[in-house]
Nucleic acid binder design. Sequence first.
DNA 1: TCTGGGGTCCTAGGACCC
DNA 2: TCTGGGGTCCTAGGACCC
Length: 418
Amino acid sequence: MFALVDCNNFYASCERLFRPDLVGKPIVVLSNNDGCVIARSNEAKALGIKMGVPAFAFDGLFKQQKVHVFSSNYALYGDMSSRVMSILSAFTPDIEVYSIDESFLRFDGFDYFSLHEIGMKMRKAVSQGTGIPISVGFAPTKALAKLANKIAKKRPETGGVYVIDSVEGLEKEIATFTIDDVWGIGPQHFKRLKGMGIKTVLEFTQLPDQWVKKHMSIVGLRLKRELAGIRTLDLEEAKPKKNIAVTRSFNENYTDFEKVKERVITFATICAERLRQQDSYCNVIQVFIHTNNFRPDQPQYNRMITVELPFPTNSGIELAHFAVDALNRIYKTGFGYKKAGVLAMEITPAAQAQRMIFENSDPRHAQLMAVMDKLNKALGQQKVKLASQDLDRVWKMKQERLSPRYTTRWSEIITIKC
DNA sequence: TCTGGGGTCCTAGGACCC
DNA sequence: TCTGGGGTCCTAGGACCC
């Protein structure tokens, strides 16, 4: 049996932990640059605030309904996440951390235990240890565990834990569960299936394999099996990342090459930093630039380029150099650029990095980068930069409503007046 | 005026190679 | 008159997830 454990309204719940005055109040959390709504408390959902809506369009409603608005505080969410996951891992050694707020757990050899009871114990332990509310779904496959988790959330009488462990139980649930809320069926697949009159999970599992394969690829076929109760997916081990991407939208359209160039250099140095964190090198980089896709009235230009590096590297200096070369090859004047990104690809562990005959990553950089990493870790991100970066820190993310990093900075720890 | 970022996997077409 | 088959790489985009 698998369990899918999911933190309820995770970011909003985190914001509430050190602000008990916000219990029962509507909360929303915004994306980078305070752009979109990416998390909502139940109270905010009840006000009709949808996931992903642009924040500026809701300023009026936020004021009128006294919605508490927060910028994303990833230092807090990341730390709370690892606390939750560490508590969960005491229940079984087989755990896959699926995202910042979700884990799959596998329970082998628990035949004589009540999984419902175990689920309730997990809820209690996480609540006691962190204050975060969770929901738990148990089922014989991962896709069904996801589904069971949704049921646990939807039906208050379940107490936040739901188990699908019999054929009858499975048949009963999938006969009524609609496909719009199923893991792996997004808006496009939903539209096509709906057009064919498919409404329930049961109906989806009865489609011919060939049809599913043709229109939803092998991925859809796996999903069909999983939903029919055939175990197709197992826990996945934590693997080193295949790609590392650093991309940002700008606060305004950039028409000046030098400004775009500075951003690309900064993104490349962050990529390099993350490569060093997982002790690996990249062999290929991709650089892209976009105009503002939300403004079709303005001239559009989207371009991406993939470049193989002459040697594997994780030096910020070298990566920045190659990224600028790439940018030069795709940059066109006469456009207002709104977004750019650098991706590190074909990542290999340091131990396996291929040495080249004629040219290799400058060995002095390894030492220099190690010192930079150490200083930045002690003094704060991006305190030591390349001269080609924005030294005046003109570029700044809009984060007007950032909460304190309660759990990771001594200077921001909560104070209690007694 | 204002619209996130970071991932994965899959597919299609064009260029090019032998 | 008549023009193959198999492969890779790159770009681009589609779909999904959180």
